[in-house]
Nucleic acid binder design. Structure first.
Length: 837
DNA sequence: TGATCCCGCCAACGT
DNA sequence: ACGTTGGCGGGATCA
């Protein structure tokens, strides 16, 4: 196997070049293109690092090195250090390339070093694959691996053959948001849970039934086909050029990223990822070879993502042993973009049906074309939902907490938006990252104990979270770390809160994932923009799979860690900047309300349901679109994305269904079985908690908004009576399970039970919804006919427009009473440990 | 050994 | 037909 293929150009320069050592930064052998490098924010630690790396010799080999590299600030220094040492000492050493020196990760670093993170729009950042390959002395094949992954993040886009455009991280936050959304729609969280559970149960499938059942339940298989997720601004370019089926790396990369974004701990093991990625297509024939191949590919992707510092390798230790996994170290992704503000906002809603919607849809349609026939049938599996929401501009005070820092930096997020703001220093980002890193782990351990207590009732002390004050956020933050119950709560005894208002004024949006087969594109239900800006979403997730499966992985445990970290650094970021940025966006001011658009795919199986509550009096069902099965989203995905930009959308079809709480009841809501939670709520009480925050789409860095929102959310919830005072809902988005016990004493009950209950609940809810006509057919097929038992628990998420900030669980009793567990968020866990390295 | 993952054959695509 | 992409999996390295 001599060199057959190597392209001419490259052939000449052997990889030997790589080996060469350059003491200094100056890249001798591989001259980086100066021009490109310059533009970006040279000064960020990262950039420096990159420079070093690029210049540096391959000497750097040990993992430590890599790690260092990935680390931000400190990393730079260390890296230097290391480099120097190595150079001097080891030069003679194995000149041979050593595998590591040829690693994709290193290559990727070099590649990235060539381009600025945030290229100015002015200059044209074109990438010529040939040139790059040549300069980096690698086969072009390798470059493809890198570029494909970058493409998946929209950091580059193909312009033409052999030519790509470099976008850097400008689109990153948007992309991540989009991916997160899609991931949620795909129910990846559930899939993950399921897989974990299976493993846990011993892979043996004795209980084929169950597995099967589960599998179907979330229709994991089907989902899979989703295709490449496009970003609004970039779609065309990319699409135009890429006709090839995006099958693997690109899509796989996106999916992989999605897994991180939807996982609470944000840690994904390769095994799980591989299974999910495979599983989608084909159910269970986990071929060994296939699995192996998938893993290989995942490593390739992971290497690139690691170079981007989006993930980092860790090991999850479970009962079974250590498993390789990766932890998300990238920016926190704001759940959405929407936001809402509160009461004030423009009451004027944008026209529900207005053209925007249509345009959007069309957009989506256009995008989807490639996929082909699948669409036709009612099975628009393709349809995904898009929630778009944007808006907000002024977020009231919500920003409160956000102090300073970010102010200046507009952040990448901004960049997402068009134009011209391109160059924002990434500094803020770095800062955030750096902060985040710090102590998470330690905290986690501490917090871990807290986790144990699933239910505790919060003490009575109500802590009013002032909607707008800054202070609250902190609390929220604390709570979040675990995602579970905040320590404080744990000790607290369950209290039942009277739900104060059963105010009529809230609307509930449901988007059952599969609710209807939507013939039309439109999601079966649309949200109407209500006068009130705020919207809170409640999502019930079918816990069937989820809950039961306690995570086998350390994820849960890990959760502790992450949250902590996230709290510290990330949340901080102010929101203000965002605001500003946003205003730039659309003038859709009127539209501001968030909109959610979701397409539903009629997946019978899927059980998810999400509810969004609006403070308005309307009950509006949303489709959740889990988009369907296989078809997922095709390139056209973008449609969804597009939606983002539009502030409001109303579903073309469905329109709004006004329902008052009472009506709701009438509708059968009673069916809602909510498990006995600590708090009782009348159905009506479920009202939405108005949330303030949020918003800004692309605002600042990473995570920011959550605190404020969470605080607001908490406040709201408390106010509304959904949660007892004093209870804080974690800001952390994603799914959280809340254990609910019918009786206080049950607190200690096993998770399993809880899970069961939850499942039931969800089912009940679904049924209920179905009855109400909210869910459409969805329930029947999906939900087993089990009689509802009084105690079931469902997870419900309260989502602030800004993001999935908070979650709380709500359970319903057959008696029609709704209760919310107090602040206890339960996350199933197993003892897992995550170790870096 | 198992975890990683480099290497490059070769098929699908594009032009 | 030839060049570009990139799926795929053998098998070398690493840990």
């Amino acid at each position: 196997r001599s060199v057959l293929k190597t392209p001419l150009k490259q052939a000449a320069t052997s990889h030997s070049v790589l080996t060469e050592i350059q003491p200094d930064c100056q890249p001798l052998t591989t001259p980086p293109k100066p021009k490109e490098i310059l533009p970006a924010d040279p000064w960020t630690p990262t950039s420096n690092l990159k420079m070093l790396i690029s210049a540096a010799s391959p000497e750097i080999r040990s993992r430590e090195q890599r790690r260092e590299l990935s680390n931000n600030t400190s990393g730079v220094l260390q890296a230097k250090h290391c480099l120097q040492e190595h150079l001097s000492g080891d030069e003679y050493e194995k000149s041979q390339p050593s595998r590591k020196e040829k690693s994709l990760g290193l290559l990727c670093h070099k590649f990235l070093a060539r381009y600025p993170d945030y290229p100015s729009t002015a200059e044209n950042n074109y990438i010529c694959l040939d040139e790059v390959a040549e300069e980096l002395n690698v086969e072009r094949r390798r470059i493809y691996d890198i570029v494909n992954v970058l493409e998946s993040l929209h950091m580059v886009s193909r312009l033409a053959k052999n030519r790509y455009a470099w976008h850097g991280r400008h689109n990153l936050s948007k992309t991540l948001q989009a991916l997160k959304k899609v991931g949620e729609e795909n129910k990846y969280t559930q899939q993950i849970q399921m897989i974990k559970k299976r493993e846990y149960e011993h892979e043996f499938d004795f209980d084929g039934e169950r597995n099967e059942e589960r599998a179907r339940s979330f229709g994991s298989n089907e989902h899979s086909e989703m295709s490449f997720v496009e970003l609004p601004g970039m779609e065309f370019r990319a699409a135009s050029v890429n006709s090839r089926k995006d099958k693997s790396l690109r899509v796989m990369s996106q999916k992989f990223v999605m897994l991180f974004l939807v996982s609470t701990p944000q840690i994904v093991s390769l095994e799980v990822a591989a299974k999910i990625l495979i599983g989608e297509d084909q159910l269970e024939d986990l071929d060994k070879s296939k699995f192996k191949t998938k893993i290989r590919r995942l490593y390739d992707i992971a290497n690139v993502l690691s170079s981007l510092e989006l993930i980092k390798k860790v090991h999850v230790t479970e009962e079974r042993g250590r498993k390789p996994a990766f932890k998300w170290t990238g920016p926190e992704v704001l759940p959405n973009i929407q936001d809402t503000k509160l009461e004030t906002t423009s009451t004027t809603c944008p026209p529900p049906i207005s053209g925007c919607i249509t345009s959007k849809e069309q957009c989506s349609k256009n995008l989807f074309p490639s996929r082909g026939r699948q669409n036709f049938t009612r099975h628009p599996s393709l349809i995904k939902l898009v929630k778009s929401i944007e808006n907000d501009r002024r977020k009231i005070q919500s920003a409160p907490t956000s102090p300073v820092k970010i102010s200046a930096s507009t952040d990448q997020n901004l960049s997402a938006f068009p134009s011209k703001m391109a160059q924002v220093p990434a500094i803020a980002k770095h800062q955030l990252e750096g902060q985040s890193k710090k102590a998470k782990e330690m905290k986690m351990k501490l917090s871990r104990s807290a986790l144990e207590c699933n239910l505790s009732s919060p003490e009575v002390v109500p802590k009013p979270a002032p909607p707008r004050t800054a202070a609250p956020p902190q609390q929220a933050a604390l709570a979040q770390p675990l995602g579970v119950c905040p320590p404080s709560h744990s000790s607290v005894p369950p209290v039942v809160l009277p739900h104060t208002h059963s105010g009529v004024s809230y609307a509930i949006y449901l988007h059952p994932s599969q609710a209807h087969t939507v013939t039309t594109y439109s999601p079966s239900f649309m949200l109407q923009p209500l006068p009130c800006a705020n919207v809170t979403g409640i999502k019930s997730i079918n816990s069937k799979v989820l809950n039961k499966i306690t995570t086998e992985e350390g994820d849960n445990q890990i959760a502790t860690d992450d949250p902590t970290k996230s709290l510290t650094a990330k949340e901080r970021p102010t929101i203000k900047s965002e605001t500003s940025s946003q205003r730039c966006l659309k003038r859709s001011q009127a539209l501001q309300e968030n909109n959610l658009i979701k397409r539903c795919r009629s997946d019978e199986e899927s059980l998810d349901t999400s509810l969004t509550f609006f403070p308005s009096g309307y009950l509006i069902p949303l489709t959740q679109c889990t988009h369907g099965n296989k078809a997922g989203f095709s390139d056209k995905e973008k449609a969804g994305i597009c939606s983002l930009q539009h502030t409001t959308y109303s579903s073309p079809i469905a329109g709004v269904i006004p329902v008052t709480a009472s009506e709701l009841k009438a509708v059968n809501i009673p069916a809602f079985h909510i498990t006995p939670l600590n708090i009782m709520l009348s159905p009506t009480s479920i009202a939405a908690a108005p949330v303030l925050s949020n918003s800004c789409l692309n605002s600042s860095n990473t995570s920011s908004a959550q605190n404020p929102s969470s605080s607001v959310l908490n406040f709201t919830l408390q106010h509304v009576g959904l949660i007892p005072a004093g209870v804080q809902v974690p800001a952390n988005p994603v799914l959280q399970h809340v254990p609910v016990s019918s009786q206080p004493e049950n607190v200690s009950r096993s998770s399993d039970n809880m899970n069961l209950q939850e499942e039931k609940v969800s089912k009940n809810i679904l049924q209920l919804l179905d009855c109400g006509g909210l869910c459409g057919k969805y329930s029947a097929p999906c939900v087993p006919k089990e009689p509802q038992e009084p105690q079931t628990v469902t997870e419900i998420f309260f989502r602030t427009p800004g993001g999935p900030n908070t979650v709380s669980a709500v359970s319903a009793n057959s008696d029609g009473t709704n209760r919310i567990s107090q602040g206890t968020l339960y996350i199933p866990q197993r003892k897992l440990e995550v170790s870096e390295d």
